Simulated assay, not measured.
Amino acid sequence: MPEVGPLLKHWRAARRLSQVALAAEAAVSLRHLSFLETGRAKPSRAMVLKLAGVLDVPLRDRNTLLLSAGFSPEYAESALDAPALAAVRDALEAILGQQEPYPALVMDRGWDIRRANGAARRFFAFLHSGRAAEPPGPPNVLRRMFHPDGVRPHVTNWPEVAEALVGRVRREALGGVTDERAQGILDEVLRYPGVPAGLRTLDVTGPLLPIVPIRYTRDGVRFAFFSTVTTLGTPQDVTLQELRIECFHPMDDETRENVRAHVSPTTAR
C-alpha cells in the first residue's frame, strides 16, 4: 500500500493545483499541507476526506487514500444487483427505455456492458447477423469496437472512432475514473490485428472535438450516431459513481428511417 503523502501529491498534480492553491481551497496551512505530502505529518481521517473532496478524488481512490493513512474505507462498493440499489436499477431501466428506438447501454469502469436496452441488442444483432465469431470475454465496449469479430468491420470511420475511444480511456485514467482493469483491456485491444501501432502512443493532451460521430454500414444500410454519456448525481457508492449511461442519437433522417426499417421490434432480423 503506497504512503498517503505521495498519493495526495499525485492527486494535486493531476488536478493541476499548486500547494498554495490547494491549501487555500481546503483552508489548511501551506506548512501543514507540505508536511502531509512529505510524510512529516500524518493526516486525520477528516483531513483525508476534506482534501479528497477539494481535489474531487473518485470514491474508489478516496478509500485508497484512507487505507494508506491507516483508516478504514468510507464508501461501500455494492453489487449492482444488491437489494439496496433496487431504486437505481429501476432508474437505469427507465433511462434505457426512454431512449428507444435508439440504442443505449450502461457501462462500468472496465467498459463492460452491464445493461442495454432492446434497441441496442437489436442493432448490434443486425450488424452481427450471419457471423459466427464473437469478441472474447463478456460484452465490452472496447473489445466490441476493436476486435475484428466485433463491430469494427461495420464502422466506416473506425480510425477516427478508435482514436477518440483511446483518448477517452486515457483521459479518464488521468482523472482517476478508470483503473488497472480498464487499462489492461485497452492494452489488450491495442494488440488486436489491424490496430495501428500509433494508437499506443496517442497524445491525449490536445483539444477535443465537440462530438465524434460513429458511422455504421451493413449490406448498404447506413447509420450515423453521436452519443451522450450520463453519470449518476452525488453517488455515495463506488459502483454507482463508476457507472456510465451512453445513449446513441441519430444524426440524420437516413439513420432514423433505417432504425425504423431494420432495428424496430417488429422489423429486426
Results as ranks from 00 to 15, higher is better:
residue 6 P to E: 04
residue 7 L to W: 02
residue 9 K to P: 00
residue 11 W to M: 05
residue 15 R to Q: 14
residue 17 L to H: 14
residue 17 L to W: 11
residue 17 L to T: 09
residue 20 V to T: 15
residue 20 V to D: 14
residue 34 S to K: 03
residue 34 S to W: 04
residue 36 L to H: 09
residue 41 A to T: 10
residue 42 K to Q: 09
residue 42 K to H: 09
residue 45 R to Y: 09
residue 48 V to E: 06
residue 50 K to Y: 01
residue 50 K to V: 01
residue 55 L to F: 10
residue 57 V to R: 11
residue 64 T to P: 00
residue 66 L to P: 07
residue 67 L to D: 00
residue 70 G to C: 10
residue 74 E to H: 14
residue 82 A to Q: 02
residue 84 A to R: 15
residue 88 V to A: 14
residue 89 R to E: 11
residue 89 R to V: 08
residue 90 D to W: 05
residue 90 D to E: 15
residue 94 A to L: 11
residue 95 I to R: 11
residue 99 Q to M: 01
residue 103 P to F: 05
residue 109 R to T: 04
residue 111 W to H: 10
residue 112 D to A: 11
residue 113 I to T: 11
residue 115 R to F: 13
residue 115 R to A: 15
residue 118 G to T: 08
residue 125 A to W: 01
residue 127 L to V: 13
residue 129 S to K: 15
residue 131 R to T: 07
residue 135 P to R: 02
residue 137 G to E: 14
residue 137 G to Y: 12
residue 140 N to T: 07
residue 141 V to N: 14
residue 143 R to L: 03
residue 143 R to F: 07
residue 155 V to M: 03
residue 162 A to S: 05
residue 164 A to E: 08
residue 166 V to E: 13
residue 171 R to N: 00
residue 172 E to M: 13
residue 175 G to I: 01
residue 176 G to S: 12
residue 182 A to E: 03
residue 189 V to S: 05
residue 197 A to V: 14
residue 203 D to L: 12
residue 203 D to V: 10
residue 207 P to W: 00
residue 210 P to A: 10
residue 212 V to E: 05
residue 212 V to S: 06
residue 213 P to F: 04
residue 218 R to P: 07
residue 221 V to C: 03
residue 223 F to A: 08
residue 227 S to N: 12
residue 233 G to M: 09
residue 234 T to W: 08
residue 235 P to W: 03
residue 242 E to L: 04
residue 244 R to L: 06
residue 254 E to W: 09
residue 256 R to M: 13
residue 257 E to F: 03
residue 262 H to Q: 07
residue 262 H to D: 06
residue 263 V to P: 08
residue 268 A to D: 00
residue 268 A to W: 02
